[in-house]
Amino acid sequence: MLLNLAFLPTHTRNHNQILLNGYQLLIIMTKLFPLVFRCQATGDLIGYAGISSISVLNRSGEYFILIGNKQYWGKGIATEVTKRITDYGFKTLGLHRIELTAFVNNQSAIRAYAKAGYKHEGIKRQSGYRNGQFLDKVQMATLCHEWLAISEEV
């Protein structure tokens, strides 16, 4: 699914809004750089995403996303939001590297990240704890020069 995004000015200096095929996204500019997105038609909160652990010295950060409203799963929103935040991280924040992790059994997320340009780097063994057990996570990342080579698609 192709999603159209447009940055729109708001009344406050530290906020921007994005429209994503009827979904209203609010960007709050901080060192954390979170993004909250909701359905414009219904007002339903869909989820949030952003870049955390931003290191000025290393020019790196860690991407995160949660789409908590399951009715919006499988619609390409995660891939598009990932692309837009990654683009912002490199082109506006000046990052060199953005990384992420996903549980190995979350193949939908891994596919979305790969579609967005992230590359598999390895497995972090038993690095997450869920439902009473330690689980492996996939480590993925993209670098600025890799992103710039494909960012015309965003």
Rank of each mutant, 00 (worst) to 15 (best):
M1C: 01
M1G: 07
L2M: 01
L3S: 13
L5M: 13
A6P: 00
A6W: 00
L8C: 07
T10L: 12
T10P: 01
H11M: 11
T12R: 10
R13L: 14
R13N: 04
N14S: 15
N14I: 06
H15C: 10
N16W: 10
L19D: 13
N21C: 01
G22F: 03
Q24I: 02
L25Y: 02
L26M: 11
I27R: 06
M29T: 08
M29Q: 06
K31S: 07
K31V: 01
L32C: 00
V36M: 15
V36W: 03
R38W: 01
C39L: 14
A41V: 04
T42A: 13
G43D: 13
G47L: 10
Y48R: 14
G50V: 06
S52W: 00
S53R: 09
L57S: 08
N58W: 02
S60Y: 00
G61F: 03
E62T: 10
Y63I: 07
Q71V: 07
Y72M: 08
Y72P: 02
W73Y: 02
K75Y: 00
K75W: 00
A78R: 02
V81I: 10
T82P: 00
T82H: 09
T82K: 03
K83P: 00
K83N: 08
R84S: 04
R84Q: 10
R84T: 03
I85E: 14
T86R: 08
D87A: 11
G89Q: 06
T92P: 00
L93N: 05
L93M: 10
G94P: 05
G94Q: 15
G94H: 08
G94S: 12
L95K: 02
L95P: 02
L95Q: 05
H96Y: 09
H96N: 14
H96R: 07
R97A: 06
R97T: 04
E99D: 08
E99R: 04
E99F: 03
T101I: 11
T101S: 15
F103K: 14
N105P: 01
N106Q: 11
R111S: 11
Y113R: 06
Y113L: 02
K115E: 15
K115F: 03
K119N: 07
K119E: 15
H120G: 10
G122F: 06
I123T: 09
I123E: 14
K124L: 13
K124S: 07
Q126C: 09
Q126K: 11
G128P: 00
G128S: 10
Y129I: 03
Y129S: 10
Y129M: 07
R130L: 11
Q133R: 08
Q133L: 08
Q133C: 06
F134T: 06
F134C: 15
F134P: 04
F134W: 14
V138N: 12
V138Q: 13
A141E: 12
A141P: 02
T142P: 03
L143R: 09
L143I: 08
C144R: 06
E146N: 13
E146P: 05
W147N: 11
W147R: 07
L148C: 12
A149P: 01
I150P: 00
S151M: 10
E152L: 06
E152D: 11
V154I: 15
